[in-house]
C-alpha cells in the first residue's frame, strides 16, 4: 500500500485526456471522450500505477449512456474514467485486449444495455437467457415489457 494519489498529480498526468475531479478522498474521476478512452486507460495503467479494473459501471441518463471504468492500483485510489456515448449509436472500443477482466463486464453490458464493443472476441449472451429477444435491452430507461413477446422460461397457456 502506498500513499493515495492526489488530484494535482492525476490532473497533470492525464491532462491531455480531460479534466480530473476529486469525488471523495480516495476517488478521482476523469471525464474523457469515447475516442480517447483506450489511450486514457493505457496511460492510467502506465503512469498512474493502476494495475486492475474493479468494474465497468453503466448508467442510462435518458440522453446518453455513461460508462465508468473504475481502476485501482497499489495506491488504493479508485481512478474512474468516465465517457458518454450516444444512444442512437451505442458503440465503443473493447478494452478486453488491454484488460482481460473487461471482457466479462462488457458481455454483461452488451446484454443489458445493448452497447456494442468493437473488437471484443466473443460478445455472446452471458446474463440474459438464450430465449431473450435480441433487440430488447432491459436496463435501458425506455424499456417496457411487451406482453406479446416471449422472454424465455415456461410458456403460460392463456385460455
Amino acid at each position: 500500500m502506498t500513499a493515495l494519489l492526489t488530484l494535482d498529480y492525476v490532473a497533470e498526468k492525464m491532462k491531455e485526456y480531460g479534466t480530473a475531479e476529486q469525488v471523495r478522498s480516495n476517488r478521482i474521476r476523469i471525464r474523457t471522450t469515447p475516442e480517447r478512452v483506450s489511450n486514457a486507460i493505457q496511460k492510467a495503467l502506465e503512469s498512474l500505477g493502476c494495475d486492475r479494473l474493479i468494474t465497468i459501471s453503466t448508467a442510462d441518463n435518458g440522453t446518453t449512456f455513461e460508462l465508468f471504468y473504475h481502476l485501482i492500483g497499489p495506491h488504493r485510489t479508485v481512478v474512474s474514467i468516465a465517457i458518454e456515448i450516444p444512444r442512437d449509436q451505442p458503440e465503443v472500443i473493447s478494452m478486453s485486449g488491454i484488460l482481460s477482466p473487461a471482457g466479462i463486464y462488457e458481455r454483461q453490458i452488451h446484454d443489458l444495455f445493448g452497447i456494442m464493443f468493437r473488437g471484443h472476441p466473443g460478445l455472446k449472451k452471458i446474463i440474459l437467457n438464450e430465449d431473450w429477444p435480441a433487440d430488447e435491452f432491459p436496463l435501458r430507461k425506455d424499456w417496457k415489457k411487451n406482453p406479446d413477446t416471449y422472454y424465455g422460461g415456461i410458456k403460460v397457456e392463456r385460455t
Binding site: I54, T55, S57, T58, A59, G103, I104, Q108
Partner: peptide, 14 residues
C-alpha cells in the same frame, strides 16, 4: 436512478 452491482464471483470467473 441506477444501482450497478458487481459481485465478487463475476470478477473471479475470468
Amino acid at each position: 436512478e441506477r444501482v450497478d452491482i458487481r459481485t465478487p464471483t463475476l470478477a473471479n470467473w475470468t
